[in-house]
Nucleic acid binder design. Structure first.
Lengths: 163, 163
DNA sequence: GTTGAAACGAAAAAATA
DNA sequence: TATTTTTTCGTTTCAAC
């Protein structure tokens, strides 16, 4: 599937982002397709790499990780986080993005306490300059991805930012 | 369930983060529990709000949204994004976090093109000062959450940062 | 892409240890 | 109390249209 996603594909993705456990039976009914047809669509989306998997979503606070923080790293030459460490060294780091501009990477962090965060930032500091932002509250996270404006966009609810 | 998650809970969460579609049958086998026992555990985790749902995971680039950016907002008085707009106004915004420090919010953005991103940043700029970071590449995203160091942590693979 | 049928697997309940 | 077994139900897949 190299062609652009059509309206039906996006409806399927919307439903599966809402509930990733939907059976082809129910999913088909929701998008007005028969079970085999919708199964074939999903299979193609998986094959094309549009769908990369299915995950349970967790409330980190309820799981004992109430602190979220963003960290911008500006790694020192030869000590870049990405080059000198491995994912297993920093289990608290749940996202790593390389950036344009001054900072080289943006990290998203989950920790159990300020004490843990402090320790982590100190360890990270060994790789270069860093700027950290502690999250006070999260309005949205894992919000369903929608088709770009160029394609027909489904109606979005007009609810506010708070969840 | 107000008590802390035990080792088995974390093993269940680890497996469901890997594959959110696991049946109680398979899941039970993976964590050495009978299907009813594991079903009861999952039910409790859902009830306690630790598990908030199940989502398909999508590769935004493959879905026609190749650009990711972070935006730090410093909203002007009376024009705060959170107060004057609604989620539906900005479908490109997939995450919204309130921050400590100078910036008031951190946004994560997905767009179809630089042109879209430019237009979006202009609209967002109407709410106050902003600093934007375009993502060059993403090493990790949606990485499984692990138990904090205070609790027994499962073995983490020692693979590098690249996925 | 749809409909129908058949086979498979999962979930719930009851019985048992 | 937890596990196993059975039964029932739903889902998936295949074949025909």
């Amino acid at each position: 599937m190299d062609r652009q996603l059509d309206r039906t594909d996006w409806r399927i993705l919307a439903e599966l982002q809402r509930d990733g456990r939907l059976s082809y039976n129910r999913l088909g009914r929701l998008v007005n397709l028969s079970p085999p047809a919708v199964a074939e669509r999903v299979r193609r989306l998986e094959e094309a790499g549009v769908i990369t998997g299915y995950q349970v979503t967790i409330d980190p606070a309820k799981a004992g990780l109430p602190l979220t923080a963003f960290v911008q790293m500006r790694c020192a030459p030869g000590r870049c986080l990405l080059k000198t460490t491995t994912a297993g060294d920093y289990p608290e780091v749940v996202e790593v993005h390389k950036l344009t501009g001054d900072s080289c990477t943006m990290l998203k962090i989950r920790t159990a306490s300020m004490r843990h965060l402090e320790g982590l930032l100190e360890r990270l500091g060994g790789h270069g300059e860093l700027t950290s932002f502690v999250v006070l509250s999260t309005q949205y996270e894992g919000r369903p991805v929608e088709p770009p404006a160029s394609e027909l966009r489904p109606v979005t609810d007009s609810a506010g930012w708070s969840r």
